[in-house]
Amino acid sequence: MLDADFFRRWMTATAASVDREADRLTALDSPIGDADHGSNLRRGFTAVSAALEKEAPETPGAVLVLAGRQLISTVGGASGPLYGTLLRRTGKALGDAAEVDEEGFAGALRAGVDAVMQLGGAAPGDKTMIDALVPAVDALPGGFGAARAAAEQGAEATTPLLARKGRASYLGERSIGHQDPGATSAALLIAALADTGAETDTGADTGGE
């Protein structure tokens, strides 16, 4: 079972990973975006960590709703409402339960991903975060590790795609040949989930990696 602490550690692990990878995310965002993805997400997840520490929500749903709200408020770019909606809708789908099982979480995350697709209008293959998130959700019944592998593969597979959403879509064919920054950061989110799961399984509870 996954409790509020698990979800808090997932968010903290994501914040650490985004902080580590911020320069890479921004570099990916330079040729096809406006070169702010890493710094925007770093600002957002730093705010998420601070808010979770301050407010200490008691249920998994409340952790993700709070995290989502922070991202919408603080990111400043399109990734704010997109990631914010992902976490907030997932959190709402989890309801008020003190603990959720992995199956319940997988269903909730799918609801979150569906909400992101509805918000941004992106479908798989449009070269967006959806290209990492949909494979991850599809693979989630096989475990967090399988979801991580699927997300990373999905992110890498965006390189040859033509961007159909967001600023990159204005570039047309020039968007081909670059890995999508949003899919890359989505893979980091799922990788942090897998790390948090592995840490929980081994009984380690250091809050780090």
Binding site: G68, G76, G77, G80, P81, G84, T85, R89
Partner: peptide, 13 residues
Amino acid sequence: GSAVLTVKALLAE
């Protein structure tokens, strides 16, 4: 982009 998405996210959620 983010102007539209932010408003939509605030309205939806």
